[in-house]
Amino acid sequence: MARRRVSFTLAAVIVFFIILLSLVSIRLTGIGNNFPNPVGSFIRQALAPLQSGVTSVTTGIRDRVVSIWNLNQLAAENQTLVTKVDELTKENNQLKQKVLAGMRYEAMANKFTAPDVWTKATLGASVIDRNPSNWYHTLVINRGSQAGVKVNDAIITSLGLVGKVISVTNNTAEVILILDTEGQVSGLVRQSDGSAVFGIVAGSYQQGSEGMQSDLTMSVPKDDKVNQGDLVLTSGLGGVYPKNIPIGTISDVRLETGGLLKKATIIPMVQFDRLEEVFVVLNGGK
């Protein structure tokens, strides 16, 4: 049987329309756009038990391998130390934040108190799924609208900022990490005199402390005095994230090509690929 040949023009028209349609569709269904997606949510729900099973097995194996590698005792000791360091880092950050804020508020005759994220209502949640793709940095937590989680709620850990909620179902919520290019945050660094330098903290894929990895950078004007080791906090501008949540510490400052801006590389407070539990800041942090 001879096959019918499709004419070149027809093929070209079909290809053109497929590309056009895809681009329009990608554009219309961007992150944060809540269009109805029954097919996706059905498959995701069907996959959930399998994924949580596999995740627990993988985590188990990883922990086992790590403990054999380090010898059991060392691992246990390490664990307590890590917890201790995390606690101290949190305390240290809070103190630093208070001292720096204090320098500023003193000038205003103590009429203000430093806003602090831990005075706000938070809700604990577990990470139950991660994004399968290389191109997005999102994860799914096991609390949804029934527990009062809303779109744009900030997600934090005891150490610092994780991201924000982009979509909610009854029992789950999808969180975009600040590492994602769509999850940019307005950041703030206090200079040595207590005044603030503002900048946009954005995720990028670059050479980091452990080889190539997703990392955070912040661009600030050339003349601003930001230094290695400075703490970067959320600025509270933009209305999504509450003020003064730690984002990370500056590890490196470089002059950008063009010479008008400096680019600071930030080591995040949170180890994003090891996240298991997070807090949701409820009611937009108000």
């Binding site: 497929i18 590309i19 349609l21 895809s22 681009l23 329009v24 569709s25 990608i26 269904t29 961007g30 992150i31 944060g32 756009n33 997606n37 097919v39 996706g40 949510s41 498959i43 995701r44 996959l47 994004n131 399968p132 793709s133 997005y136 979509s167 999808e174």
Partner: peptide, 20 residues
């Protein structure tokens, strides 16, 4: 196209990217 479309629906945004 089929698998890409399904993957897009599972990811939940930018529908059409993986399909294309």
């Amino acid at each position: 196209l089929l698998l890409g479309l399904l993957e897009d629906f599972i990811i939940g945004y930018n529908i059409g990217l993986n399909a294309l």
